[in-house]
């Protein structure tokens, strides 16, 4: 049975397995990339099974290359379906981007914001939803280059959501990163998404280069402006399950849990304000 995640989650990394098995790291739910875990047995596979047997799991894909003009990898989709079923994963999401063109490059590459890209990616999202027999979510990615632009990023995302009938995984850190790198108002971006179906959120740290440009590294603590943007998101769309992504420079378990707990404190503040307003 799928258990819908609530509260504050954490991206599950191999480096954290022992801490998670021993409950030193114990968020409300975990997220994994299926591409890091499909076909993994032995100690790691055993640990994943043990952790997932007691904590809800969501899946966040990396390699589906949903926006690529290469053929869809139908074997990968069917492997993902087995993985989602085996671990009762409540959600599956992918990035609104592509990562392969005649071979994988294993990174999230920027789609042009054009009508052709909307049609192409939406048709592929629908096919993936059909094959997986479930609704999926797509995530707004950090992008550093805009290959072609006929519309804003927000309009592009909204058009894809409308045409593909999928959910939005709103990455609040990516909204901040893009708003800084491409000079737009992050609050207006969040406001533009309030009518969309948003099952859960991501938050992460990033790296600011000397020239001010921001790289979405998931390698540092979440900064205050991103926490503020998360609070604003809760105010706009209500409390949503929120996941902390930390992929590099992974700190001690206790420090990581502080950030997870901070998500929960923002969520409870938001609930309190809502309740007070009702009274």
């Amino acid at each position: 049975m799928q258990i819908k995640p609530e509260g504050a989650g954490l991206g599950l990394r191999r480096e954290l397995l022992d801490d998670c098995v021993s409950f030193s790291v114990a968020p409300d739910f975990f997220e994994v990339a299926p591409e890091n875990w499909i076909g993994i047995g032995g100690q790691w596979g055993d640990s994943l099974k043990q952790i997932v047997s007691r904590t809800p799991l969501v899946c966040h894909g990396l390699s589906l290359s949903i926006g690529s003009t290469d053929p869809l990898d139908t074997q990968l989709i069917s492997d993902i379906k087995c993985f989602l079923d085996e671990f009762n994963a409540a959600f599956y999401s992918e990035h609104l981007s592509y990562c392969s063109h005649q071979g994988h490059l294993y990174d999230l590459l920027p789609l042009p914001f054009t009508d052709e890209a909307i049609k192409h990616v939406s048709q592929r999202i629908r096919e993936v939803q059909d094959r997986l027999e479930r609704r999926i979510a797509i995530e707004n990615v950090s992008y550093y280059s805009v290959p072609e632009q006929d519309m804003t990023e927000a309009d592009f995302i909204k058009a894809v959501l409308a045409e593909s009938q999928c959910d939005l995984l709103l990455d609040v850190n990516n909204v901040y990163v893009n708003s800084q790198n491409h000079q737009y108002d992050p609050l207006a971006f969040i406001e533009a998404m309030t009518q969309e179906s948003i099952p859960y959120l991501h938050v992460a740290g990033h790296f600011r280069k000397d020239n001010g440009f921001i790289i979405d590294t998931h390698g540092a603590n979440v900064i205050d402006p991103v926490w503020s943007l998360l609070t604003y998101t809760y105010q706009c769309i209500g409390n949503k399950p929120t996941l902390l992504e930390r992929d590099f420079n992974i700190p001690e378990a206790s420090q990581l849990m502080q950030e997870v707990e901070h998500i929960k404190s923002l969520q409870s503040q938001c609930s309190r304000i809502k309740n007070n307003n009702k009274n």
Partner: peptide, 11 residues
């Protein structure tokens, strides 16, 4: 190299 695998452990 045209890498075919979507799996990181297979790179």
């Amino acid at each position: 190299h045209q890498a075919k695998t979507p799996y990181f452990s297979q790179i």
